[in-house]
């Protein structure tokens, strides 16, 4: 069983992170939108049992795509790595 306080900590970290990206790319909303799209693609692949064993995006691919997107924003990228299951 998962301790509820860990869940809320993860939720809180995710909110802070999304807010940070949104703020960072206020002048370049297309980057923020691309980030959301990468996450949605990843999630869709994860939730679709038909995509197994040929899963769509691996954690590594997600990280690579986000790394391309966040080029020059190393703090955002390293923080993103902390969310990935196999970073």
């Amino acid at each position: 069983p998962t301790p509820p306080e860990s869940d809320s900590l993860e939720f809180h970290n995710a909110i802070s992170y999304v807010n940070k990206i949104k703020t960072r790319f206020l002048e370049r909303p297309e980057i923020y939108r691309s980030f959301l799209e990468i996450l949605h693609t990843y999630q869709k692949d994860q939730l679709n049992p038909k995509s197994r064993p040929f899963r769509g995006m691996s954690e590594e691919e997600v990280f690579t795509e986000v790394a391309n997107l966040f080029r020059g924003q190393e703090d955002l990228l390293s923080e993103f790595g902390q969310f990935l299951p196999e970073a």
């Binding site: 993860e10 995710a14 299951p85 196999e86």
Partner: peptide
């Protein structure tokens, strides 16, 4: 407080699920 759209909220949801998976895989 945050001004989040539904898209933002689902990103939060995905990120926190990822973090939970990560914790599960580390423990």
């Amino acid at each position: 407080s945050y001004d989040f759209t539904p898209m933002d909220s689902s990103a939060v949801y995905v990120l926190s699920s990822m973090a939970r998976q990560r914790r599960a895989s580390l423990s």
